[in-house]
Amino acid sequence: MLATAKTLYRPSILPGFGLTLGFTLTYLSLIVLIPLAVLFLNAAGVGGAKVWSELASARTLAAFRVTFGIAFLAALINAVFGLVIAWVLVRYPFPGRRLVDSLIDLPFALPTAVAGITLATLYAGNGWIGQGLAPIGLKVAFTPLGILVALIFVSLPFVMRTVEPVLRNLDREVEEGAALLGANRWQIILHVILPPLLPATLTGFTLAFARALGEYGSVIFIAGNVPRVSEILPLLIVIKLEQFDYAGATVLAAMMLAVSFVLLLAINVLQTWTRRWQGG
């Protein structure tokens, strides 16, 4: 009995273990774990035929394609620009750098509904940006492109914020060493600087992808929400809930949650990998 107690919990002279862990577990269970478990229980209770008809319907499949495809694209675009922005902010001193640096987090602070109505207005045919794009035949608002714009906005800071600390901690003497050994700048960037940034970039990409997959508020205003064209999965879930099709909504939500869990696992693995490069 004593042996198991020892391996489960190493004694400490500090008080409050039972109280704090008990409170943490109770609160976490009540707010998050039990509600999510109920969702999975409900999903398990849905009959096989209903699950199949739900998942194989053309509308659901289209929503899956739109949601995953555009979220992936948005995360990819942010991975490229996030790297460039992190690089510029860490390596090139230019006036206004502090201001730019603090603005990066705007998508985390701005409510998604505000982002949604603003982007829809900007990119509509008579909006500031939409006006410029109309002559070249590019329609953004109320098309799948609009979804892309909204998802780029909400997932913009992730890659930049995960890459930045790693880039800041890179030992410049390694670059000097490579240069003294005769490498040119391009070789140094490709073989010395980018490899240690890879885990952080992948972490940021996965975080951005996970965030973009579940996004709802900013997308619904700009998407147009045409079934099978510009309808995202979270919206389809909301529609099913509003029609009191709880079983249908549950099946879709359970699928999305399963994907979230896989991504969460990937993020954990990637973060462990990133930390090794941060030297923390």
Binding site: P35, L36, V38, L39, N42, A210, R211, L213, G214, E215, Y216, G217, L233, P234, L235, I237, V238, L241, Y246, A249, T250, A253, M256, L257, S260, F261, L263, L264, I267
Partner: peptide, 14 residues
């Protein structure tokens, strides 16, 4: 962090 807000609301409806 990785659960869609829509699902966060939905579990309480269920």
């Amino acid at each position: 962090f990785s659960v869609s807000p829509v699902i966060a609301g939905m579990v309480f409806v269920l």
